[in-house]
Design a protein around this nucleic acid. Sequence first.
DNA 1: CGGCAATTTGACTATCCTCAACAGGGGTGG
DNA 2: CCACCCCTGTTGAGGATAGTCAAATTGCCG
Lengths: 213, 213
Amino acid sequence: MELAALTAIGRTRQLTAGESIIWEGEDSVLVANVIDGVLKLSTNTEDGREQIVGVVYPSDFIGRPFGGTTGHGVTALTDAKVCVFSRRDFDAFAREHPALEHKLLERTLGELDRTRRWMLLLGRKSAAEKMASFLVEMTERLSGSSCRVERDKPNQRILTLPFSRQQIADVLGLTIETVSRQFTRLKNEGVIDLPSRREVTILDFDTLVAEAG
Amino acid sequence: MELAALTAIGRTRQLTAGESIIWEGEDSVLVANVIDGVLKLSTNTEDGREQIVGVVYPSDFIGRPFGGTTGHGVTALTDAKVCVFSRRDFDAFAREHPALEHKLLERTLGELDRTRRWMLLLGRKSAAEKMASFLVEMTERLSGSSCRVERDKPNQRILTLPFSRQQIADVLGLTIETVSRQFTRLKNEGVIDLPSRREVTILDFDTLVAEAG
DNA sequence: CGGCAATTTGACTATCCTCAACAGGGGTGG
DNA sequence: CCACCCCTGTTGAGGATAGTCAAATTGCCG
């Protein structure tokens, strides 16, 4: 299979939480595959406001093949392991392996769909709807990995979020204070519980879905 | 060239302004190339709020190849001409023509970049910044086609927008009233002029760029 | 010229942001 | 092992931006 040859031109790299491997605006010199961990894609305004424009999980692809500059930085949210390729090598390899390009095309189309759905959230949803949408998405994305279920409470999911409050705000286009207030509101209403800073227990998933707009 | 064979499996279709060719949520049954005109890609919340998630111009690609349902509707903003393909035919054709897939991949990657940049606008920019960004983008996109220059005023560009006020609001994640107020503010400040409903004269492009954030 | 839809304007309101103070908790060093 | 400290997150008060609702105006088309 081609994967062997592809692996040969890549090398794995370990990242610690907070470490960046690609910076906004620089020439695209490398691409990578996520092996383990969660990374964010983000852009900033000149005056420092940040918007997280994508979140990538294991098996996702990072970087901008085929020329151009990268429009967003890539930073590890958790400790992460990635398989890095020189963009030149990758480009050449891809052009010779249509099956790989096809796979990449399918992934990119899916990513574009997901990104566009997120635009509806950013442009048209209220803070409450944004938070609910976020928690629904997180429940789906973290199913399996960072998700525990207590034996006696099968409807509850305990998620370990890969985001700080500030990062959640940067995903949703809100401020950290608004995010915090929404969390405490949902907790007071019995929809979620907050066992620790990075954990959320989903008590009433249906209400979240309804509130997501 | 392969284009001949591709054209053989497609057929051109004329759309009048306001007409849709793809609806949100339906199975992806066709894809198309824009020959002439401007179309919007949009999603709606259940309660009717709309967000325009993309705008396509001549030579752009429409639709979702390779399975899946389309996450957004496609509607003509102006009268338009498109070259339509059955998705089945197109998928099969594409798989046999890596050069076409490569081209489509490059386009899709570019579209993803542009979409992500727009997320920064939706999530983090003020109404004034959104309007300025919009007018800057329009000036760039419409250079040539819907753009006139008076002989004696080379720095002014007269744009014919393919959007109504409501549609501008749906692009920017604002209300129609806010868009209208921003237009009159910019006009009062001498940055633009508004000769008619669909036209904008750019008097001071630099100020717009500065105000775009 | 009249009718209709799109746009503008105005007054008021709500949501979310800003600024500021406070609380918690996890880790470190005594 | 406990106390302290610092960072992150929470809470509060007040304010600004953009939304809502309503009315007036424009301009387009028959």
